[in-house]
């Protein structure tokens, strides 16, 4: 199965979920789905379209404070990206954020922490007791601090089924890392996504 197939499935199922409407179910929970382009870089907007490394993220939100003009948010997300020639990453993360509305428009910012499982494309070797080297697992687990900011628009704010479109710039790190004195390998991701309520 290709990345494109997986993304298509994810979007299609979200639409099916959106079409369901069962009044006896508990309150709807927001589901956030975003597609993103990832790169290894210091924060920059260059390069995302030149050679996109695609990813997808699915998550939900919990509200410490949920007012008409602002929200204090905790997110929980799983995501996956494939960086050609370097690695694939599967992560679980949570973010604390604030969202400010002006009409249907909003701006938001988040800080987060997660666990990032990596499958490296570079061959990796470990030393044996005799001082020789043998092929090592290409799987690694790393901490994933993140910071992000975005803007968006929420349609149907006064309805029970508001739908949000947003874009978000995210900088996340892969740590511990240790080469040439750099303790964190920085990544950037540019997300385009949607959020809508689904009944659990």
């Amino acid at each position: 199965m290709t990345i494109r197939h997986t993304l298509a499935l994810a979007v299609l199922s979200a639409q099916v979920a959106l079409a369901q409407d069962d009044p006896i179910r508990p309150p709807a929970r927001p589901l956030t789905i975003s597609l993103f382009s990832e790169s290894v870089s210091l924060p920059t907007f260059k390069g995302f379209l030149r050679r996109p490394n695609l990813g997808v993220r699915i998550g939900t939100e919990f509200y410490y404070r949920n007012r008409p003009g602002s929200q204090l948010i905790q997110t929980l997300n799983v995501g996956f990206y494939h960086h050609r020639g370097l690695q694939s990453g599967l992560y679980l993360n949570t973010e604390l954020g604030y969202r400010k509305f002006i009409g249907g428009f909003f701006a938001e910012g988040f800080i987060g922490l997660g666990a990032l499982g990596l499958s490296q494309q570079l061959r990796r070797y470990e030393r044996t007791e005799t001082g020789d080297f043998r092929l090592a697992s290409r799987w690694m687990l790393r901490a994933m601090p993140s910071v992000s900011a975005g803007v968006g628009y929420q349609f149907g704010r006064q309805t029970t089924m508001p739908v949000t479109l947003f874009t978000r710039y995210e900088a996340f790190g892969e740590t511990p890392f240790s080469n040439r004195g750099i303790p964190v390998l920085p990544h950037s991701a540019l997300h385009i996504g949607t959020r809508f309520p689904v009944n659990p």
Binding site: Y125, R127, M140, F177, S178, N179
Partner: peptide, 11 residues
């Protein structure tokens, strides 16, 4: 090179 400081070498 040992990219992650864990003694394992990447090609």
């Amino acid at each position: 090179a040992d990219l992650y400081g864990d003694g394992r070498l990447f090609d």
